[in-house]
Amino acid sequence: MPNPQLNANGELIHLLSTEGLPREILTHILDTAATFVGITDREVKKVPLLRGKSVFNLFFENSTRTRTTFEIAAKRLSADVLNLDITRSSTSKGETLLDTIDNLCSMHADMFVVRHATSGAPYLIAEHLKRMGKHDIHVVNAGDGRHAHPTQGLLDTYTIRHFKRDFSSLTVAIIGDILHSRVARSNIHALKTLGVPELRAIGPQTLLPTRLSQMGIRVFHDMRAGLKDCDVIIMLRLQNERMNGALLPSVGEYFKHYGLSPEKLILAKPDAIVMHPGPINRGVEIDSEVADGSRSVILNQVTFGIAVRMAVMSILAGNG
């Protein structure tokens, strides 16, 4: 089955997942993002690349940070950005997802940035656009269910490359609720494609998918053992709703075993970086001393996220 993210020439036309994207495309996105990082130092903090284009932010699930960074990225590319408040719009009156898309296409949308609680919703939209012959409208997945959050995966890989330069000798640990994490999935696919030799998953058995070791990922239930000699530590947010599903005994117990404290951080390499997709739960998965410490690159991730989203949108817009 052809990759729905690519056109017949193998060019990226939608960003739906990091899974199945060739290394060259991932590298092109990261290289392009690097050229956007310095734009904020200029007198005019935007380039005219998407002038006259309309980007629609369709957030069917709340996320202030991701929506805002997509909005900033589109505006720095000179696009017109429309944020649809879906919870108050026609969807809540019963309109189907694809009817909403058709209506927005009639308003001459050029790109949809979609966040949806259901896995596969952005795929559905991309397939629908293809069926309708609307090949010049692009879809960016801003997080769908448990499935994927590709721009977060890309900004994480960008951050790693920025601080570590080369993927080929790294040990990267992803820690926490990997089972429910679309961020973890997007990171795993991107980092494997980019050649990270050792990927580790650390967490309680109830929060780790069963097939990780078949994907070549080393699984640890003991965080101290898993952190040994790591170059990169990616902490995941513990979603409060997991506490109700009998997956964990208590927040205090979780922090004791899987929270990143200064004592545990010592076990990683001395120059290891600490990442987190945000929003962070201080005292749940990460200690404030670590989150605010010199090894934390959490705020760098946010800054790089804008450049990575600019890169994705400009590459998509250029590929008809």
Binding site: D31, T32, T35, L49, G318
Partner: peptide
């Protein structure tokens, strides 16, 4: 840009 897309190798200004 609309005809040719983004250059495959953009270098930072």
């Amino acid at each position: 840009f609309a005809q040719k897309g983004l250059h495959p190798q953009v270098r930072p200004t």
